[in-house]
Structure formats: C-alpha cells, structure tokens
C-alpha cells in the first residue's frame, strides 16, 4: 500500500490532494496509520503497532483498516488495491 505521491499529510491530520484540490481530515489513529503507510510498512506490521498501543483485536483492526484503506482508495489518495496486489 502506498500513498499517492504529492498527497500532503499535515501533522494535525489534514490530507490535501494537489491534483483534485480536495482536503480531508483524519483522526489521530488515522494519522498514525498514514505515517506507517508512508513509511511503507506492511499491513502486518501496522496491525502489530496499532494493537500494541490500543485495546483492539486482530479481526476488529483488519475490518477498520480495510474500511480506512477503502476510503483512501475511493478518494484517489492511495494506489488502488489491484495495483498494490500486482
């Protein structure tokens, strides 16, 4: 999973897509996950980091993570699932 190049993420969690001009805000956990994605960590490592810090289990994390990635993908902020898998 890779953030599309040029997508700007501010420390406070505002995402700006310079191609479309759209802005999005994400919550603190969202920022943490985005930073891990930006560091090109695999999903497994992201899951470990989040589960170590927050009181959640693997199935819940996976569901929320996929929802989050789906929203990022829908808004062209990350490379598409197909691309990533290929």
């Amino acid at each position: 999973m890779k953030l599309n190049k040029n997508v700007a993420v501010s420390e406070s969690g505002l995402l700006f897509n310079p191609v479309t001009g759209e802005s999005f805000s994400v919550n603190p956990i969202g920022i943490e996950i985005l930073n891990l994605i930006r560091d090109e960590k695999p999903e497994e490592e992201i899951a470990e980091a989040i589960m170590a810090k927050y009181n959640t289990d693997k199935p819940t994390f996976e569901k929320d993570y996929q929802d989050f990635i789906g929203i990022l993908s829908h808004n062209n902020l990350v490379e598409s699932h197909e691309k990533t898998k290929a």
Binding site: N6, P18, V19, T20, G21, S23
Partner: peptide
C-alpha cells in the same frame, strides 16, 4: 455559480 473560495492545484 461564482467561486467565493478556491485552491490552486497541480493537474
């Protein structure tokens, strides 16, 4: 339909 606010983009 007039822009009262806008943002420069790179496309």
């Amino acid at each position: 339909g007039k822009a009262w606010g806008g943002i420069s983009i790179s496309d």
